[in-house]
Amino acid sequence: MATITVLLFDFGGTLDGPAHWLDRFLASYRAAGIEISRAELDPAFDHATRIGYGATRVVARFGLTDLVRFLVGHQFEYLRKSGPEPLRKVLDDAGAAGRYRFVEAVTNSFVRETSIGLAHSREVVGQLRSRFKMGIVSNFYGNLDRILEEAKLDRYFAAVADSSRVGIFKPEPGIFETALKKIQCAPESAAMIGDSLAKDCAPARKLGMRTVWLRTAAQSGDDASAADITIRSIDEVAQIQW
C-alpha cells in the first residue's frame, strides 16, 4: 500500500464547520426567530445554490459575507413565493425593511459560525502542513480562492479545485483528477477527507484514493463502506495512522 503524501479536503461542511450548510442555515433561521423545518428550507436552499452556481461571474468577487447574503436573499425570495403559507405571510407582513433585517440576521449568524469553523481548521491544517501536501476539492461558486484568502487558509493548500471554476462538479471524477494533477500526485498516494459519502468518499475511492468520512450526521441510503476511515471531528485527521 502506497504511503499517503497528499490530503485532499472537501470545503463546505468539512473545513468550514462540522455540519452541512443546510443544517447551519436552518439553525441561523431559527436563531433569527423564523420557524421553519429542514424539509421546508431544503428546496429554498437548493434553489439558491443553483442560482449561485450559475452566477459565477458575479459571485467570483464575493467574500464570505457577500456570498452568504447572496444565497440567503435568494432563499428568502423562494420562501416568499413558494414556502409554507404561514411563513409566506410572515415575510409579506414584514415588508421590505423587515425582510432585509431577517436576511441580515441569518447572514450574520451563519458567517459567525463559519468563521469560527475556519479558524479552527486553520489550526488543524497548520499542524499537518509539515507532513503532507494539501488540496481542496469542493462544489463551490467560483470564489473559493477569495474565501480561503480571507480566512488566511490559502497558504496551506497547493491545489484548489472549485467546481464552478473547473466546470466539473462532484461526484464526477474529473474534479478530483484536476486537483491531483495540480498537486502532481498519483491517486494511491492521496486521501480524500469529506463529510459526504456519495460526493467525497465514493468517487475518490473509485479513483484509488484512500477515503476519510467526517461523519457529522447520519446519511441514509449511502454506502458507508466507501469510507476507509470514519472520524467525528476534523481534529482526528492528525491522529490517523496511514
Score class of each variant (00 low, 15 high):
4 I>Y: 06
9 F>N: 01
11 F>G: 07
11 F>M: 06
14 T>I: 03
16 D>I: 09
17 G>L: 05
18 P>F: 03
19 A>S: 14
20 H>S: 13
23 D>L: 11
24 R>L: 14
30 R>A: 09
35 E>A: 11
38 R>N: 10
41 L>R: 11
43 P>Y: 08
46 D>H: 13
46 D>E: 13
48 A>Q: 11
55 A>C: 09
56 T>R: 14
61 R>P: 00
62 F>Q: 01
64 L>D: 03
65 T>W: 15
66 D>E: 15
69 R>I: 00
71 L>F: 12
71 L>C: 10
72 V>I: 13
73 G>M: 03
74 H>I: 07
74 H>K: 05
77 E>F: 11
78 Y>G: 14
79 L>A: 06
80 R>F: 09
82 S>Q: 14
85 E>W: 00
86 P>F: 06
89 K>N: 00
92 D>C: 05
96 A>F: 02
97 A>Q: 13
99 R>T: 11
101 R>F: 10
101 R>A: 15
102 F>L: 13
104 E>C: 04
107 T>D: 11
107 T>S: 14
112 R>G: 00
112 R>T: 02
113 E>F: 12
113 E>T: 14
115 S>T: 09
120 H>C: 03
125 V>C: 06
128 L>M: 12
133 K>P: 08
135 G>W: 08
136 I>Q: 07
139 N>K: 01
144 L>T: 10
145 D>F: 07
147 I>P: 05
148 L>S: 12
149 E>Q: 13
152 K>Q: 07
152 K>T: 08
154 D>Q: 14
154 D>I: 10
155 R>L: 09
158 A>E: 05
158 A>P: 00
158 A>L: 06
162 D>L: 10
163 S>T: 08
163 S>C: 09
164 S>E: 12
165 R>M: 05
170 K>C: 02
171 P>Q: 01
171 P>V: 08
172 E>R: 12
176 F>E: 02
178 T>H: 15
181 K>H: 15
181 K>P: 02
184 Q>R: 15
185 C>I: 04
187 P>V: 09
189 S>N: 15
192 M>L: 04
195 D>W: 02
196 S>I: 00
200 D>S: 01
205 R>Q: 14
205 R>L: 05
208 G>L: 10
209 M>L: 15
210 R>S: 07
211 T>S: 01
214 L>P: 05
215 R>G: 00
224 A>H: 03
225 S>T: 14
226 A>K: 03
235 D>F: 00
236 E>G: 01
241 Q>K: 10
